[in-house]
Amino acid sequence: MRDLQDRLGYLVLAATALAYFAVYTTSLGRPPGSFDYLAILNTTMPLVLVALGQSLVVLTGGIDLSVGGVVSLCVAITAATGGAPGWIVAVVLLGALCGLVNGLVVAYGRIAPILTTLATLSVYTGAALWVLPVPGGSIVPEVRAVLSNPNVPTGLGWLALAVAGWWVLRRTRFGLRVYAVGSDETAARAVGVPVERVKATVYALSGLCSAAAAVFYVATTTAGDANAGAPFILTSIASVVVGGVAFTGGRGSAMGAVAGAVALTLVIDVLFFAGIDPLYQSLFQGLFLVVAVLLGTGAALLARRRAA
């Protein structure tokens, strides 16, 4: 029963997927087809990537509010330059650099993560506005064909790459250290974990993920907006929470957060096909968030009672 909290993300995703299937089939009279799955994949990819990065930070007991700013900045640059491959590499590196700045301030400046990233959120959002004052821009069709092709599920390959990256990372010394820092920083320090370096790295990785998300975002929407990143702040946190990653750090997995991100995107489709006024959308998303977490803590409580 104790694993239930760890598997929360998958359970919520399974339940949401089931609801999606049922609601879609009853409202349209046929089960969702490959087109629908592809649309879900392409619209959910940016959030999946941001949530992945956010979960790494949360695993060390931190939080990254600047993901909104990094996504905005990288969306702005990608769209303004048309997203030629050289620029995409530059954008991804820039994202990692933005994240690294957060990490250095948090780790060596000893400023609380929520405050550091709140300040840099403003700086990065400003930079995005400077690059792209009015919404617009474009993306090279070849890049779109490789990243979020509307006809072929190319996104699956990238999703698999992200998942594989996490699987490898988790089994490395670095992955172990991320959990060590998150569970007990003092103890980790005592056994010689370079806590500062680990923290700096997770923020850099979060920045990198946000940059990749931005490239996907532009590839899917084929245009950019300097405020594109703002919604990702709260939705990435929600994904991490629904995915069963503990805010105290050290518990959960990035895969849970990925499942949480997909579930959060699916909920919107469920509401749509259930014929609920889109104006009420965030009401159900908010309830979904709290109920998912309550289920997790309820299960943990039940397990403790049974063990006692």
Partner: peptide
Amino acid sequence: GVAWLGVPAVVMTLGMNGVLQGLTLGVSQ
């Protein structure tokens, strides 16, 4: 929610923000 149900403050208040946003938009159309 925070004190008695043990929901983390970030989650509880984030959820409340969403609930009120939906209610406000929905009821006021």
